[in-house]
Computed example of a mutant assay.
Amino acid sequence: MDLDILRAAIAPYSLNSCLVSRQDRLVFEHYREPDRALAPAKINSCTKSVLSMLLCIAIDRGLLPAPGDAPVSMFFPQLARDPDTRKREMTLLHLLTMTSGIRWQEFGGLNSFPRMTRTPDWVSHVLAQPLSEPPGRKMTYNSGVSQLLSAILSQATGMTVAAFAERSLFGPLGIEAYDWETDPQGFHTGGFGLRLRPADLLKLGQLQLRRGSWEGHRLYSSALAEVAVAPVVRASPPYDGAYAWHWWCGSYEPGDSPRQARDER
């Protein structure tokens, strides 16, 4: 690996940080300012993938059922009373893969995400949205369903998402410095709002690469780790690639630029 090429490639960008690990060894470390190494930084929508890991842990421990077999109405009984009976078909798997069918445009148009964050009850707001198609038909990027998953995880574990993370994920990985936003009901934000130190975010990526195992301890099964990142549905424009359980999926051949890889998918 030619690190000089990497340094030159990232030079035009005002990156908060850039860490590269190879074969479990940190081989490159860059910070905009030295103190960024120790300061928790916004990871924005990477929060969704951290939530996915926590859901895998809960499923592995039997706290949640298999996603495809669990209707969302198990956790939100009001859906059984909704005039649109298609909402009763919505499962945890539909939420994880953003194929809920809920009418949603994250930004622009409906401006669904900002509208949600301005309401006094985010979960109720998302559940009340109409469907634009039956569940399972189409992937539509939707941070609202991530908030539903956060509320479901909290309900299933009997604790806040952050408390569950400290016990079952952050603790085993030695992650102590973090901050996590909450909605008006106190549910931690499922689609954004988590702040982590760069080295701790790297640990989470390494955990997934190790298929849920960390220093001899298994946090969640290798089978769940693999299915969580296996492509389920093609992304809807303007997004590219495929989507899994709150993970984006893509592949690159050696020597490809990102644009080439997109054109060949």
Rank of each mutant, 00 (worst) to 15 (best):
M1F: 14
I5H: 12
I10A: 02
L15I: 09
C18D: 13
C18S: 13
R22H: 13
D24A: 11
V27G: 10
E29N: 03
E29D: 06
H30C: 03
Y31P: 12
R36W: 11
A37V: 11
A41I: 12
I43A: 05
S45F: 02
V50I: 14
C56K: 03
D60V: 00
P71E: 02
F75G: 04
P83C: 00
T85V: 13
R86H: 00
T91V: 01
T91Y: 06
H94T: 05
S100R: 09
R103L: 02
F107S: 10
N111V: 02
N111L: 01
W122T: 00
V123Q: 07
H125C: 08
A128Q: 15
P135H: 10
Y141E: 08
N142H: 15
L149Q: 06
A151S: 13
L153M: 08
L153I: 08
S154R: 15
A156D: 11
M159Y: 03
F164T: 02
G174E: 12
W180D: 02
E181D: 09
G186S: 04
H188W: 02
G191S: 05
G191N: 10
F192E: 01
A199V: 15
L207N: 05
E215S: 14
S222C: 07
E226V: 07
A230Y: 10
V232E: 12
A235Q: 15
Y239A: 02
Y239S: 01
W247C: 00
S251T: 14
S251N: 14
S251G: 14
A261E: 07
E264P: 05
